[in-house]
Design a protein around this nucleic acid. Structure first.
Lengths: 201, 201
DNA sequence: AAAATGTTTGACCGTTTGGTAAAATTGACG
DNA sequence: CGTCAATTTTACCAAACGGTCAAACATTTT
């Protein structure tokens, strides 16, 4: 057995810890989460938890970095060679479905960013920034070609983030105001109307 | 002097505490804020802080309830007798200016809501819900009269909240991606385009 | 100026928190 | 089965936390 192999037990526990950490961090933020809570959610003891990760920071960091890729995947898919409006709408709908299906991931990042992103600021300034720059170039080209309305491509991307993630991050408010479970079908109809109207050249 | 009078010193300290609490709670959330931090920001000692408020919860609650009215003021101003699109755009711009001028207030509520609004859920379900119901009626009437596009009025309101507050709540991300201070003028142009296009009957 | 009231502080308390040490237990494997 | 490494637990620690208390200090009232 080599130095870097992971045992069956390690894999099982790391998966348990990951799920528990995502649960707890997304619900209470970094500061609000406790190791005891993560440990008991994972069904293990606190010292056992710290056998797998050296510190609370390390757990948080592991969860954030592992999920960042998943979280940005839909944006990567915007294809230069596709139809502008359909490509953007596909992104919008993919992000909306992500808000519906992965609300914990959404809240994890929301919690971090609303408090100044102290632990992922550098990633936002490099990886995310480069990715957005790439896509902004494509959007700008489309606009120049007259295939999209003349809008600021940065704000277009921000609008998609805010409108879709709102249904995950502020779901309690949405439910409190409407009085029932959030209807993602209604949201989809609404966003479809919004973006088709806004983006038409 | 009557039983309920406030002295000069009380007024001064309560103002200091309020500012400090808003600063700290909006930056770190309820759990992340500490009494020591609030006290030292206010320039007083912790026991002195607790001379004015009985507990951390009480400070947080005082700040939240005092600001809720301010925070909802722009929505109240939507006027049944005005021009639909202009009334809505006025609300959008007012909310955007609130995000620019009162980012602490915005983040205070964002922090609370993203973690499930444990301390203001009941207010959201009553006061906020009733206010929104009122305005939804007006919007529905406008739509029925053919003066607005056929959209879900609830989602219209949610979209305004998310698009405007995004510039306050997720400002670090916006700045990390663009590389410069957030331009609220650009945001205003963008939102103006978005809502005029979307709302036209 | 004295008394009464209002304000501030240092010292302290019990609990929670992130984290550690070492022993005990379990599992892998020849 | 025995041995060695991997895993888990018990008991614990120091710091940070929300909060208390009684005494000191300041201000207002008589």
């Amino acid at each position: 057995m080599t130095e870097y192999a992971t045992t069956r037990i390690q894999r099982k526990n790391q998966a348990l810890i990951f799920e528990a950490a995502l649960d707890v961090f997304s619900s209470f933020g970094f500061r609000g989460a406790t190791l005891d809570q993560i440990a008991s959610t994972a069904g293990i003891s606190k010292p056992n938890l710290l056998y797998y990760y050296p510190s609370k920071e390390a757990i948080h960091s592991a969860v954030l970095t592992k999920l960042l890729h998943t979280w940005l995947a839909p944006l990567r898919e915007i294809d230069e060679n596709g139809d502008p409006i359909e490509e953007i709408l596909l992104y919008v709908i993919n992000k909306l479905h992500a808000a519906r299906d992965l609300p914990r991931e959404s809240r994890l990042f929301a919690n971090e960013i609303v408090q100044g992103a102290p632990r992922i600021k550098s990633i936002l300034e490099t990886d995310l920034r480069h990715l957005v720059e790439d896509k902004v170039k494509i959007l700008s080209k489309w606009i120049k070609q007259g295939r999209l309305a003349k809008i600021d491509p940065y704000h277009l991307i921000f609008s998609i983030w805010s409108l879709t993630q709102h249904y995950a991050d502020f779901d309690v408010q949405v439910q409190a105001v409407t009085g029932h479970e959030t209807s993602f079908d209604e949201a989809e109809v609404f966003l479809n109307h919004l973006y088709r109207r806004m983006l038409a050249p």
